[in-house]
Design a protein around this nucleic acid. Sequence first.
DNA 1: CTGATTGCAAAACGTTTGCACGTTG
DNA 2: CAACGTGCAAACGTTTTGCAATCAG
Lengths: 144, 144
Amino acid sequence: MHTVEEIVARMSSQGLRVTDQRKTLAKLFADSPGYLSPKDVYEFMGKTYTGLSFDTVYRNLRVMEELGVLEQVVFEEGVKFKLHCREHDHHHHLICLQCGLTYPITFCPMVQTAVPDDFRVVKHKFEVFGYCGTCEQEETATQP
Amino acid sequence: MHTVEEIVARMSSQGLRVTDQRKTLAKLFADSPGYLSPKDVYEFMGKTYTGLSFDTVYRNLRVMEELGVLEQVVFEEGVKFKLHCREHDHHHHLICLQCGLTYPITFCPMVQTAVPDDFRVVKHKFEVFGYCGTCEQEETATQP
DNA sequence: CTGATTGCAAAACGTTTGCACGTTG
DNA sequence: CAACGTGCAAACGTTTTGCAATCAG
């Protein structure tokens, strides 16, 4: 669990400047349960910072990724970011296609996967997509 | 298993023109065991067709995808294409990071994954990345 | 005060489009 | 010969870069 304070402290300890914009960015991700695209971030931040530029958003997303605060995932629709999960417990995710909310899955299929002897496994990806309870209700509610 | 003849026949039956370039493209994928990026395809085709343009490569990749001959997958490094697997048996892949070769995995983790009652699953992705025997050998061979 | 951070403009990159010409069926 | 395919140039959306002005420590 990353709080705004933890993120800010981590930035500061690395000699990075803690600007208003970065604090807001930290808060945005600390409060978001799921994935955000650079555009999502730009739009949210733009409400507070008029004249905000896309390149600053990208720069700060990259900074926070290198800091280990954010993790980046590539989806069909493009790149998205979320708070980095606590690293020690390896796990996967259920991802809501509507709101981007993620649930952890503790089950890892890798342990049961038979791999040819001569194939050296480096990494794997297991993601489940669908609709969370809330979004599912909203969807059926709007259907006449 | 898709042969060049099958692909050509499928194109022709859909009213598409069978040009030399498309035949070469079909042959390229019929002979390739793994994923190819648009750039890979462009470079290969460029050897035969001087003055080839990227847009034609993209157009034909899209045509063959819509035809169901190719399937498109999004990787960290970008979009790649390969021959569409026989649809009837659901499976996943081992993918070689060096040469793009893919092996099928018949095991599907989805059947064992516990999902909250209120989450409706739509699709899932399970991919294992590493190095195949051939690439592994080449890599260790070049290490002094 | 000094170096990090920002906005601006412009470039880079992968992909798509409109158009006129050439080719396939 | 008609419709489809091609190359060219140019547009597009996303991401990155160089620069000078500004800000945090």
